[in-house]
């Protein structure tokens, strides 16, 4: 075999070099630095005064009730958003599967919230949900239904935020699912019809398995995204009332000036939790997902 010249050996590394430099600078280095910071009691004014404290930050995290409170909130939020979004977008996708002009308009309508900044969306919903003057309570009252305190009660605040996030997100996922549904050969449905299959069984045994890769994708993407929720909380409640909507990332944000080492350690914990969750998903679900 011909011996490779020096350039031939180097060429692939040179080619991917620029991308690798970017990834290292903007992904790997910050991540490692986050881990590094988490072992320090960091002094913002004078970094020379920073002190290595080992695992003290981590020990502190797991001993503080406010961490568990925000972890619980995040888990409830994630569960709520993931389940609601999956169900609602599946419903809309099945509804909008047929390519009629009306459906195109509806689909565009559902997708529109997704292209609006979440900050604007949050502000608008903040007004809508205002208990005394807001539109939601006005509408509920007119319909003779009980009103809600929405964001101003610790009982309903988290759920209110879930509503906003779901409303903002479904358009995108409907789009993915509609595409998946339209990718299924109509012959398969016709074959099922000839096999005397009930509509429910067609959905459960044919439609769902065939869009399972997309459903799985949505599950993973949404879980990761929801665990990192921040903007809605920041704008609509600021974590309140009484920490009812304090989520992990907002919790970290709270320590941005006062205790950087502690914030970094919480960030690492968040990263690990998301990693474990994703791993569990893949272990549990991989058998239920049908890739063709």
């Amino acid at each position: 075999m011909k011996k490779k010249t020096f350039w031939e050996t180097c060429r692939p590394y040179v080619m991917i070099g620029p991308a690798m430099i970017g990834i290292f600078l903007f992904v790997i280095y910050p991540m490692l630095y986050l881990v590094y910071l988490s072992f320090f009691k960091y002094n913002l004014l004078n970094s020379a005064m920073s002190r290595y404290v080992g695992f003290e930050n981590y020990i502190q995290i797991f001993n503080r009730p406010d961490f568990y409170k925000s972890l619980t909130n995040t888990v409830i939020y994630t569960g709520g958003v993931v389940v609601l979004t999956m169900l609602i977008s599946l419903f809309f996708a099945v509804w909008l599967k047929k390519q009629t002009r009306l459906n195109y308009i509806i689909q565009a309508g559902i997708f529109t919230p997704h292209i609006i900044s979440i900050v604007s969306v949050s502000l608008v919903w903040l007004w809508l949900m205002e208990p005394n003057l807001g539109f939601l309570n006005f509408a509920l009252e007119k319909l003779g239904l009980p009103t809600s305190q929405w964001l101003q009660s610790s009982k309903t605040a988290l759920f209110s935020i879930i509503i906003v996030s779901v409303w903002h997100g479904i358009g995108y996922y409907v789009l993915i699912l509609v595409a998946a549904l339209q990718g299924i050969s109509p012959n398969i449905y016709e074959a099922a019809e000839l096999d005397n299959t009930s509509r429910f069984r067609v959905f459960r045994r044919i439609t769902l398995p065939l869009i399972s890769p997309q459903m799985f994708f949505i599950l993973i993407i949404m879980t990761i995204g929801s665990f990192k929720v921040f903007d809605t909380v920041r704008i609509m409640t600021g974590g309140g009332p009484n920490n009812a909507t304090n989520t992990l990332v907002y919790y970290i944000y709270g320590f941005r000036t006062t205790n950087i080492g502690y914030a970094a350690a919480t960030g690492v914990v968040l990263m690990v939790i998301i990693g474990i969750l994703t791993f569990i998903y893949f272990r549990l679900m991989s058998k239920k997902v049908h890739y063709q």
């Binding site: 050969s185 399972s212 049908h290």
Partner: peptide, 21 residues
């Protein structure tokens, strides 16, 4: 009469086999 109740069976050009089963 619904397709499944006509006593007919069909072989499709692309077979239309249920891919996940």
């Amino acid at each position: 009469v619904a397709p499944g109740k006509r006593g007919v069976a069909m072989v499709f050009q692309n077979y239309a086999i249920y891919p996940t089963m």
